[in-house]
Every structure is written in structure tokens, then in C-alpha cells.
Amino acid sequence: MSSVFVVKEIYIYPIKSLAGISCNNAKAEEMGFENDRRWMLIDADNQMITQREHRIMSQFYPKILEGKISVTFQDHEHEFTIDEHLQNALDVNVWDDKSEVVEVNQTTSEWFSKHLGFECKLVKILKTGNRKHESSKLKETFNVSLADGYPYLLIGTESLDFLNEKLDEKITIKRFRPNILINTKNAHEEDDFDTFKIGEVQFKNIKPCGRCVMVNNDPENGKLKKEPLKTLSKYRNVNNSVLFGTNIVSLNSGIISVGDELVF
């Protein structure tokens, strides 16, 4: 294994399934990066809403500035403060995990409902422990925000380059929605990481990430493509799961930055 891996890009996704934000640095917490997937849209039946069913969600672009989150969709913009929320708790599911959330405010929910074309609410998870996820592999339970399964997704640059060599239409790393992109020399070597440190933070690798049809959604225009899942399934299918990137957890809190080296 190469002794030098360097953080190339860092991303957070404040609202689950909306576009992400590129960051120069981020604060790692047990549930994931600060403000990463702390918010989520739910429908009238309190079921989570994602790009899997509503590809247009990729065209909503959040920004964080001075304690506020603004979301832009086409020529429309809406903002709310990071800390605001209503008091009544709601019980929702993120896949099989029960999660306690609260609605941000009625005006924000109405704005999303208008532009998505159906009734929905924007909700927020408030604190560590309001959603727990059990790792079937490790038989351990982790505190997670509203991400699909684990707090962080790590991908190596060579994994993407190796895939792009096989594709007629090249894609960017945005298809895979990583939290941390690192420079690597060999495709998928990140799968074999154990524990490592970036900046102030110790991370532990849990398992490679199984991918779904969502990676075929082109974030540039919200259109569904046949790739890259078709090609990936030919060489990255393990036990009927198509793997790309690896799920990791943080063992302490702290800051990581673009340019930081991984220390094993």
C-alpha cells in the first residue's frame, strides 16, 4: 500500500439527496461532517424522499453562509437558518432505521412542495442518538445523521479513473457523492484500509459501499443514464452488490482539510 494518500476534495450534502457543497475543510463529528445530511425531505406519509424516485432533486443547490442555508432551484431561492426548527418531534425511517426529526418551518416545507410538485416537509435531525444504524458486518451500532447507512464515504481518484477508462462518456466524482476524495495510485485500494488519521481525526473503514441506480443520475441535468452502473456491475459485483468507494466512521471529532495526508 502506498504510504502517501492526500485529501483532494471534501464534500458535504446538507439536505439528503440534494446537490453537495465542496469544502476546503470540514469538522468531523460522530454522525458525519458538521451540517452533512442533517436535513431531509419527507412526503405526506413521513417517508423519506430521494433522487431515486425524484431525479429533479439533484437540481436543488444549497449554500451555507453566516448561519443560514440557502437553496437555489432554477431561478428561485429560499433560505432558512441552520438552528431553526419547530418543536413537535416526528418519527421517520431512513431505510430500516427509526429516526427522530423535527420540521424546519412551514414556509420552507411549502417552498419545497411548490417546486417539487407534491406535498413534502423539510425536517432536521437534532442530536446524536436520534438515529442509530446497526452494521450487519460488525454487529455494531453507529450514531448516524440522515445518510443512507454510514456517516462518511471515502473514494480514491484512481477508482474513478479506472472506471472512466471503460466508459464512452466520462463522468465526474459527483455521481458517487463522496465525503472525502483522496489521491490514490491503484483502483479501489481504499477498500482495504483499516484505521487511519486525517488531520485531527481518526477514521475506521467499515466496508465497501454498495451502489444503487442513483449513480446513473447525471447531476448536471438530472437525467437518468445507463452508466456507470452497467459497466461497474461487470467488474465490481460482489455477492450481488455493486461496490464503489468505502464507508468509514470517525473515532473522534476534529477538523480535516484538503491537502491533509492519511496516516496509517
Rank of each mutant, 00 (worst) to 15 (best):
L146R: 01
C120H: 05
A187H: 09
F244M: 13
T231Y: 03
K185A: 15
D191R: 03
L232H: 12
N186M: 06
E134K: 15
L138Q: 05
S135P: 11
V144Q: 03
T141K: 08
K185L: 12
K234Y: 02
E227V: 11
P151R: 01
E134W: 02
F118Y: 13
G245T: 09
F162K: 14
F193A: 01
L122N: 06
N221K: 08
D191W: 08
S136P: 00
N216K: 01
D148W: 00
T246E: 03
L138K: 09
K234A: 13
Y150C: 15
K204L: 08
Q202P: 00
N130E: 08
D191Y: 12
G222F: 00
F193H: 03
K139Y: 02
V201G: 01
K139N: 07
V144M: 02
T141S: 10
K166E: 12
R177I: 12
K197D: 05
L138A: 00
F203W: 06
K226Y: 04
C120P: 02
N164A: 10
L153D: 03
R131M: 06
I171M: 10
D218A: 14
E190D: 05
C209I: 02
S145R: 01
L160E: 10
L232C: 12
T184Q: 05
Y150A: 12
T172Q: 14
K174P: 00
L122K: 04
